[in-house]
Design a protein around this nucleic acid. Structure first.
Lengths: 201, 201
DNA sequence: TATATCATGTAATCGGTTACATGATTAA
DNA sequence: TTAATCATGTAACCGATTACATGATATA
């Protein structure tokens, strides 16, 4: 990927603005954590940077809302130019695919672990992923309706097709659930193998 | 993860040195691409940096081999201190788990794609992952024996347990294959959904 | 009454990516 | 003979993470 003006995370944030309408960085982060997190994690500071970047590009407009005893809210709205950019992004093939999983590394180099250590870490990973699976199942990633689910004043979302159900969020939810199920199966198998090794029948 | 002296990729490279014995950065990169790539990708420049970092930490030693008409080979060997570090890493729970997948983002925001664009990109992704699956199956991640598979002069690997089969590489290979199968299933389903939508019966 | 969490951001740092070098072989 | 690929690295840049701020409200 040669240097370009925007990156997957940029379009992720842009997509959220397109879908849910005007939001502050803080709002974006909240929505983000319930929708994009499983496929592209980001710290809130990163989201703020993307918003600034998109403002430079003219993809969003910013309006400052003054508040007492709190930093001003900077509310961002997608522009026509932003919509075009989102559209164009969808016409290009996906470039980035990465898995970064420290647990897999520890399994790979299991030979260098003291007896018991690997099993212990596997159990921690299992607990973590069981939790993820549960949360994906419960919320099904919030399967949201456009323009809804924004706190504070409900300003109109000009890009929203009112009350149209979106099928894609459901598909992503299924992916997240399928992934966690597969991963957990694997983790349990590895754990069994490691435990059997420690205490052979 | 607060700032520490080393990161998952550091231990990844360290593990490779522990497993296969002394190597140059170039060698590490080659081994890396066939073993760690599915769980933690890295550019070669990153690997060189990790080697330099570990040298600072005293985890590896470097020996320069002069060559004509090519940059000198810098051959790195794990030290006792390095072995200890690897051991200690294995006693800590895994901290990083991340998926960064642009295709998932494009599916999530499928509403904003022009007709046909999403299907096209899905087909590209399918081709890509079919290829990955094939390569994982064929090589089974090389399921290697310690101390072997190094090009050039075969110097003795002091950390190798001669000809002992390692079971962990096989487990990781299975993970990679399971993942790709699950992912491909999902991609095909999404593609079907998108195609049906374009041309309803 | 201390400690989270809410709410809202900026700044510094660093892992990771892209770009830059350079000459020898091998392949189209 | 032109272009990949092999072989081996360094340097610059930037996405992403960690740290820094700050005051209100809710919770233990």
């Amino acid at each position: 990927m040669e240097r370009v003006e925007a990156y997957p995370i940029t379009y992720g944030v842009l997509g959220l603005l397109a879908f849910w309408g005007p939001m502050s960085g803080y709002d974006v982060k909240r929505v983000f954590d319930h929708t994009l997190a499983p496929m592209w994690g980001a710290a809130h500071s990163q989201i703020y940077k993307e918003l600034r970047r998109m403002k430079e590009l003219g993809w969003v407009e910013m309006e400052r809302e003054e508040q007492e005893s709190r930093p001003d809210r900077k509310v961002y709205t997608i522009t026509e130019k932003g919509k075009t950019a989102l559209h164009e992004w969808q016409s290009q093939p996906a470039a980035v695919f990465q898995l970064r999983d420290e647990m897999l590394l520890k399994v790979l180099f299991g030979t260098f672990a003291a007896s018991g250590d690997l099993a212990q870490n596997l159990r921690t990973a299992i607990a973590d992923h069981e939790m993820r699976l549960l949360s994906y199942r419960q919320s099904s990633l919030f399967i949201p309706t456009r323009g809804e689910w924004r706190h504070g004043d409900k300003r109109h979302n000009p890009y929203a097709v009112e009350s149209e159900e979106d099928p894609y969020f459901g598909l992503i939810a299924r992916f997240a659930i399928d992934f966690e199920k597969m991963y957990l199966n694997w983790l349990y198998e590895v754990l069994k193998f490691v435990e059997d090794k420690q205490a052979p029948q």
